[in-house]
Design a protein around this nucleic acid. Structure first.
Lengths: 200, 200
DNA sequence: TTCGTTTTTTGATAATTGTCAAAAACAATA
DNA sequence: TATTGTTTTTGACAATTATCAAAAAACGAA
């Protein structure tokens, strides 16, 4: 009966995270059970913020469904720092890693279903299941590669080139995020982005 | 006699790397010996390239002394992607992690003394000494944080602001790298950078 | 030192992008 | 459906930065 319950939980709630992780390492039965035990289900309504600037961001949030963003302010103006969608993790990585206050707000752009894993839980996991250390490393590597690609796009590309790249690699976000959010993510004003769009 | 020799090697050649790593994890005697055994000493003259675009970058290079940079081309023009100096690692991280061809050249700006650790050696190390998995993760995290800071500086900062930030955080590079290298790193032309300098 | 090469500076001009303001389009809701 | 608030578009203009060309300065090798 209990085993059956675990399986139901697994199928309904945790499947996407485990699937995601098992593409990185082989997940033993014991680790799977532990992951299910420690992870916490969260629901966010569109517009809600889960982390506010200045707070510690002590968790990473695996996105089962929905779309989130991180943003900060530069002289009153909102600047979107990243988007994260289904099967990606959302967190202020800087705050999480360095245990410093978050420099960004984290907000749901759409209704979201998340799985929360706290920093301490993760550290514990690293100790008990050394193979998860590899997950941490590889996830970080993947995030690094994404950032690197992003820098290559920011440096010396024109506004138009950046938008073109974005609309190829993240085409679904064109519908799901607002013009202003996308513009600030690309490092341009929304007026400029609107004009680029118009002439294409 | 042999132990004595090992100690001499350690002191003369490998000290900086071990010191650097031991700030991250505790390094056992066995790991220390292994690190000394596997790491390879390299000398580079100013201007020499150690990795060329298109090649696999299968190693990371710990810089004992000197200054290096990674750069690629955008329509004939050299764009410096990073600088790395003493006690930092140089590599095309993307190529190294993803096992893809390097998109950048890696070059010595000054005469350099390096310690090379190959990808396969490192993977092996991860398996034999699981605690090194943590080194890999934490190094990656540190690199991630640096990139993140860099993006915050590229996005929506004026050329002048970027240069000011650079001249505070990397003041020594002002002397050691050329104007053109710094300018392209900051995503501006060298003429513009020269003018910014003049008016300060 | 001197010559040749590379790097940096300066000038004139053009292109890109930002700013501010207002209108239009769209969405949410009473 | 009318109302209100938000997002997007458009216009006029200004600021920033790039481009191209040439001069000046700095550097290295013979």
């Amino acid at each position: 009966m209990d085993a059956c319950f675990t399986i139901i939980i697994f199928v309904i709630l945790k499947m996407p995270l485990l699937k995601h992780l098992s593409s990185i390492i082989t997940i033993s039965k014991a680790l799977e059970t532990e992951l299910i035990r420690i992870s916490k289900q969260i629901t966010l309504a569109k517009g809600e913020q889960i982390i506010t600037i200045g707070e510690r961001c002590n968790s990473i949030y695996f996105i089962k469904s929905g779309l989130m963003r991180g943003f900060y302010f530069d002289e009153e103006k909102e600047i979107t720092n990243w988007f994260a969608q289904e099967n990606e993790f959302a967190t202020c990585f800087y705050s999480f890693i360095a245990n410093k206050p978050s420099f960004e707000n984290i907000q749901a752009i759409e209704n979201c279903e998340l799985i929360e894993i706290s920093h301490s839980t993760l550290q514990n996991l690293y100790t008990v299941f050394p193979e998860t250390e590899r997950i941490g490393r590889i996830l970080t590597e993947n995030y690094y590669i994404k950032l690197e690609e992003r820098i290559l796009n920011l440096q010396f590309k024109t506004a138009k080139e950046r938008y073109e790249k974005f609309s190829i690699t993240k085409s679904d976000l064109l519908q799901r995020a607002s013009l202003g959010q996308i513009a600030s993510y690309l490092g341009i004003t929304q007026e400029t982005l609107s004009r680029i769009r118009a002439e294409m």
